[in-house]
Amino acid sequence: MILYGIKTCDTCRKALKALGNVTFHDVRADGLPREVAQAAWARFGDAIVNRQSTTWRALAEDERARDPLDLLAAHPTLMKRPLIDAGGTLYLGWGKDTQAALLG
């Protein structure tokens, strides 16, 4: 299982603690792999971009209008977190539905 997130994100920390043995991929330091971003976009669509983030609010209108995958490549902190890859199945966020699916 791979958790894509940011090490300073409280939600990511909660997910890491609950999941235990998981590989952590820091998107701030290492970026979000393009194939993972494409798979997440195909599964979640527009929900993958966190439009309530500080990063989003700081962007100019023309920047916000860019292709979402290019935007995530340029600003990985815009990604809603965490993004979890559990054997090829993607989960977005750490809500009750994700917790139930991954923790049983």
Rank of each mutant, 00 (worst) to 15 (best):
M1T: 12
I2E: 04
I2A: 02
I2N: 10
L3E: 07
Y4W: 08
Y4H: 10
G5I: 06
G5D: 00
G5P: 09
I6W: 02
T8G: 02
T8F: 04
T11Y: 06
T11L: 10
T11F: 04
T11Q: 10
C12N: 11
R13Y: 03
K17I: 13
K17C: 04
A18T: 09
L19K: 05
L19I: 10
G20D: 07
N21A: 15
V22F: 06
T23H: 07
H25C: 05
R28V: 13
D30P: 00
G31W: 12
G31V: 13
G31D: 07
P33H: 13
P33C: 08
E35Y: 09
A37F: 07
A37K: 02
Q38I: 13
Q38E: 15
Q38D: 10
A39N: 08
A39Y: 06
W41S: 08
W41P: 00
A42H: 12
R43P: 01
R43F: 01
F44H: 09
F44T: 10
G45H: 07
G45I: 04
D46G: 02
D46F: 03
A47H: 11
A47W: 00
I48Q: 02
I48D: 03
V49K: 07
N50V: 08
N50T: 05
N50L: 07
N50H: 09
Q52C: 06
S53V: 03
S53P: 01
T54I: 11
T54H: 05
T55R: 13
T55Y: 05
W56P: 01
W56S: 02
W56D: 06
W56H: 03
R57W: 01
R57S: 14
R57D: 03
A58P: 00
L59S: 02
A60H: 10
A60D: 12
E61L: 14
R66Q: 13
D67Y: 14
D67K: 14
P68F: 01
L69H: 05
D70I: 04
L71P: 01
L72I: 11
L72H: 01
A73C: 08
A73R: 14
A73E: 15
A74K: 11
A74W: 02
H75E: 14
P76I: 00
P76G: 03
L78T: 00
M79T: 06
P82N: 09
L83V: 14
L83H: 10
I84G: 07
I84F: 05
D85P: 06
G87N: 04
G87R: 05
G88K: 14
T89W: 02
L90E: 07
Y91G: 04
L92F: 07
L92G: 06
W94P: 06
G95I: 03
G95E: 07
K96Y: 00
K96P: 01
D97A: 14
T98E: 13
Q99F: 00
A101W: 00
A101I: 06
A101T: 04
L102T: 13
L102D: 10
L103W: 04
L103M: 12
L103D: 01
